[in-house]
Write a protein that binds this DNA or RNA. Sequence first.
DNA 1: CGATCACGC
DNA 2: GCGTGATCG
Length: 704
Amino acid sequence: MSENLLIVNGNELISDAFYKTPAFTNSEGVFVNGVYGGIFKLISILKTSEYKALSISFSEECGNERLKPQILKFKEIIEAKGQGEIPVTKELLESLENALKDLSPSGEVKGASFDMTLKVTSDLNEVEALFETKSDRAAFYFLTDIGDFLGLGISFDGSNVTYIPVENFITADYLGKKLSILSERMSLCSFDIKESYKYFEPSEFANRTYGYKDEDVSGNKCFDVLIGAYLINPLKNDYEPWDVAKEYLKLTLPKRADLFGKEPLANADIKVLSEYASKIAYICFNAEPLIRAKLAKTGMERLMYNIEMPLSYILYSMEKEGIIVKRDELKAYGDKLLVRIDELEKAIYEAAGIEFNINSPKQLGEILFEKLGLPAEKKTKSGYSTAADVLEKLAPEHKIVADILEYRGLTKLKSTYADGLAAYIADDNRIHTSFNQTITATGRISSTEPNLQNIPMRTELGRLIRKVFVPKDGYVFADADYSQIELRILAHMSEDKGLIEAYHEGKDIHRITASKVFHVPFEEVTSLQRRNAKAVNFGIVYGISAFGLSQDLSISAHEAKEYMEKYFETYPGVKKYQEDVIASTKAKGYSETMFGRRRPVPELKASNFNLRQFGERVAMNAPIQGTAADIMKIAMIDVFFKLKELSLKSKLILQIHDELVIETAPDEVDTVTKLLVEEMEKAVTLSVPMEVDCHIGSDWYEAK
DNA sequence: CGATCACGC
DNA sequence: GCGTGATCG
């Protein structure tokens, strides 16, 4: 009996917390740090033990006048739950957690003071025992440095953290296996969890064979504090554990660079290392419930649990697979470029009458606009603009201009693609890009080191680079892309009858638009009219201004304005939608996708006109671009787990915003093609059809 | 390290 | 509109 009853001295609990927790007030300006810290500690004790009942005693005397009201406040909260022995139930815990939220000034729950007990061990028996700890959740952090796994920080209660260095029997694989097993019976939390999948496989994915499900599916799930923090604030560029600590726990901690500088972590002191890894585990454990609560409050649980978390595992898998790049052919391509670059360089020097650095916009500007006296149209902050659109207009004036444009294009191909990509080809002849899930403001994925989402496509010479991207022996690429996904989303979200109808006709959308805007029969639309309509469609999706459109089409701002007005006459629903979305974004402070992904737009309230205009374009574009990103992510989950369900050898390897690439086994081509198109098209049902095109090829050039 | 340019969707 | 990267000064 006595073992099941937790007896607490209320005065001591609050008093301890009062001195440990930095002072802060609730929304009414009353100091509540003691009550807050006390309840926080109480919750953590109740959650990590098996007490069946709780009894809290209070005494009258209290010396500290600032502390006294906090003890009384706590007494009030507790007595509302019951008198004497209070049964420990789920409801009690929930109500205590709600009490925490009420105490916090911004309605968020914040952690108690930094209060961590660290234990370092690599004793096999101790580690084995540790992994038998009873808890409903754990937080961990894999400490790695340039590919080396150094150790694991792990906590089951948010105050006791164990650091396990990798040594002897305790290998990276061993710890990974332990975590995989642990994930079967409790939820695991980490920071940037994608980086841990190399060592452990969460049980929720190990045998998963179903795709995206709207409703949550029960079971122990992994949680990534980084992804959660990103969803809540996608504008912050790089979240580090310390940022989460500060934002959610009000803790200030040294950063990685401050602790270790540029030294390899392997050289660092074990004490510093263990503390570093353990603090991150500590931060994760204590921030997790706060981030979960905020995600629930902001309606982003589905995004987090059903989309982003499974996606993190898929991105890891795609990075691991990589894509084969033919080293020798890439080199030959670069050499071919160099021949032409040298020719152009000579011709440019000849025409200029002087040798200069063509790559320097400053020097180039001086040559073109001063030495050669060409008409300078546009200026930048630092001088003449030498951007491509400016040079294109100058081309008839002087033969040097065309050469410069070609030179620019070729050196770009050479440095970024030919030479740039070569540096990333690994020993397996593959490039393993990093897909980043927590960078963009709109929810898109980004790709770095190298960026495989901007491989040339537009010009034939650039496009040829895609020939060096090949599938493994005997395999082919299946490349599927959504047809105009963003414009279709606009049609759906704006509910514009004309645009929806146009898509149901299944004909060339730009031609239909031109026909409607210019009042000519569909068959009589000229190529110029179609090109202009296409540019307007494009511009609308991006929320560009008449000025932006005029730049794109090289027409006057006046003409561009007329085009847009005609467009809005044709599709009045689009105009209405844009106005509504700006108003609601302004009112709420953020825009929202179909799946509830938020993008804060503080610019809408700026006093600066240009900034506010920018805010309007962002408010119009973010829901479109973000919804497209959501849909693609769902499609990826469907495609990935479908491949798994069917035990196919084919692997998803690339995502380029509206396009997926699968390295496909020859005997699976038909299955994969059908699967890709089906899963991508059914990822979401809109009021317009989703159209997916899929091509097969023996390299990426052919498959597009 | 910010500005400019060029590549993608 | 959203990104990444190379280059310059």
